[in-house]
Design a protein around this nucleic acid. Structure first.
Lengths: 187, 187
DNA sequence: TATTGTTATACTCTATAACTATA
DNA sequence: TATAGTTATAGAGTATAACAATA
């Protein structure tokens, strides 16, 4: 579930008439500027986002969108969206994987994978073969063209990490960052 | 632009018939398991995602979705989605801010903010007042109810950071993580 | 001529229900 | 009875064009 960063709750309740919480705590360095009114806000001013920047969710979303925008641009010549790249890569590294397994690994719902696989199949990148041990399932495999494209895309992705992200972070910092992110989502 | 993590390119080109890139480099610790065929993949196996886990984009997306899922659940009783919380918080910290400024700060397109503001206004949380220095614009302000709800939501968000994220990361690690994320998206 | 806020609208992404074939 | 894969479809998110009012 939840592929969207601005995602919304299944169903929102009407706002309760609430009493103010005991305290309005500001974690870390929150320091509203404009609201302390040195001068009134003009239309050309950038807003004070200090508090939002103390929240992990806000920063994770911004960073994810930035990286994905670069990824999108780099992969455009190959005709691959991030999700296509992920699917191709999983099949490349797990030949014979089933739709269900791809869905589990990437948090995609089965009905939403159908069209992607159809498209990859139509492009001659993916083939289905009968599953050796389960007649309901179909094993997914890459064609030679699929393997070639995936290898090229993977090299491009690795280059992106080194070159584009490397402009902002050293290799050691990148490792630290990835390790921390994994500890956040592995629970 | 780009609010979706699985976002797709404006228009995808057909796959080029490509020659394989010179090398299939594996950054860091990529170590495909299943593809090296200790045994054939069965339908109940989890797939090998080692390579994807070396990519910042993949990890950032997973972490962002995890944090946002928690945020979603915590804010449900208040009737706020992440984007609603962001808008309310920006107005609280920047009274008199305009639609355009909110859009710039949050990377939302103006047409998509209209409905959100309408909804917040209808709930009695936000009011518009004529802008003091620009007749085209309208200054956004929180009502007393809006201020109360925002304060409660902000306290809840801060609590979430301490309690939920704190289960995975120490305060110092959280600071490190946020600092690294900011360096990724501030360019 | 440019910008603010808006309407209308198209397209993409995500989610649910229901069906079939097989286990 | 449960699971793999599929169809159809609803719903939410994101994007562009075009307009009126004001700068």
């Amino acid at each position: 579930m939840l592929g969207v960063l601005h995602a919304e709750a299944p169903r929102l309740m009407p706002a309760k008439s609430t009493t103010v919480a005991s305290a309005l705590r500001r974690p870390r360095s929150a320091q509203p500027r404009a609201s302390h009114g040195a001068r009134p806000l003009t239309v050309s001013d950038a807003l004070d986002t200090t508090y939002l920047e103390t929240l992990l969710g806000y920063n994770a979303r911004r960073a994810a969108l930035t990286v994905i925008a670069v990824f999108l641009k780099r992969m455009e010549p190959l005709g691959l969206r991030p999700v296509d790249f992920s699917v191709l890569t999983l099949i490349a590294h797990n030949p014979g994987a089933t739709s269900r397994q791809i869905c589990s690994a990437l948090d995609i719902l089965p009905p939403n994978l159908v069209g992607m696989l159809k498209s990859l199949q139509k492009r001659g990148l993916v083939v289905r073969r009968p599953h050796p041990s389960d007649g309901r399932a179909q094993g997914l495999h890459l064609t030679p063209e699929g393997l070639a494209l995936q290898a090229q895309a993977q090299a491009e992705a690795s280059r992106l990490e080194r070159e584009d992200v490397g402009l902002a972070l050293s290799p050691a910092e990148l490792d630290t960052l990835i390790g921390l992110l994994q500890r956040v989502y592995r629970r």
